[in-house]
Design a protein around this nucleic acid. Structure first.
Length: 155
DNA sequence: GCCAACGTTGGC
DNA sequence: GCCAACGTTGGC
């Protein structure tokens, strides 16, 4: 089982939005970065754990736990939707460039694990998300880091 | 709102 | 294939 950190801007799609979604599940649409796409395509498995991270907001940090609920990645419909912000005219419908997975809500944290705390923590500070200039929106998480978060924040 | 860091694009 | 210019991300 893999563990992932997935970023979302709460103004665009928050952890609460996922909770309120039909079946508490949503397509993770709009990924337009090849490295992140490749994680979805090559490495994600149904049941993988997801740390849901709020970015570009007042208090960035991990706000909840989710899981991958599709058995594999599949084409992102928004790439072909001219009205979508995620429309990509260069993507060929015969060979779609961008993929999604389904993500299902699991539970909220007792309190958010803020980026500030992550950076200040001797171990968690080593997480990718804490590193300077780290913009990747889907990141693998070490089990050791997940265990710490689980112990200290889900208790 | 600022701006550093990064990924992508496109001319050459 | 190089690299400058550009657009985006995302913390602050």
């Amino acid at each position: 089982m893999n563990i992932w950190l997935m970023k979302s801007e709460p103004d665009v799609y928050s952890f609460d939005d996922l909770k309120k979604a039909d079946k508490r599940t949503s397509m993770w649409e709009g990924v337009r970065n090849y490295q992140a796409r490749n994680f979805m395509r090559d490495d994600m498995c149904k049941g993988d754990v997801v740390l849901f991270y709020h970015s570009n907001c007042k208090e960035p940090g991990i706000v909840g736990l989710a899981e991958i609920s599709s058995s594999k990645a599949y084409p992102d419909p928004t790439q072909f939707d001219k009205k979508s912000n995620y429309f990509d005219p260069k993507s060929d419908p015969e060979n779609p460039r961008w993929l999604v997975v389904d993500v299902r809500y699991r539970k909220a944290v007792k309190r958010p694990v803020t980026l500030k705390e992550i950076k200040a923590h001797p171990e968690l500070g080593k997480m990718k998300v804490a590193q300077r200039g780290m913009r990747l929106s889907i990141q693998p998480v070490d089990k050791a880091h997940y265990d710490i978060i689980q112990k200290e924040f889900w208790g």
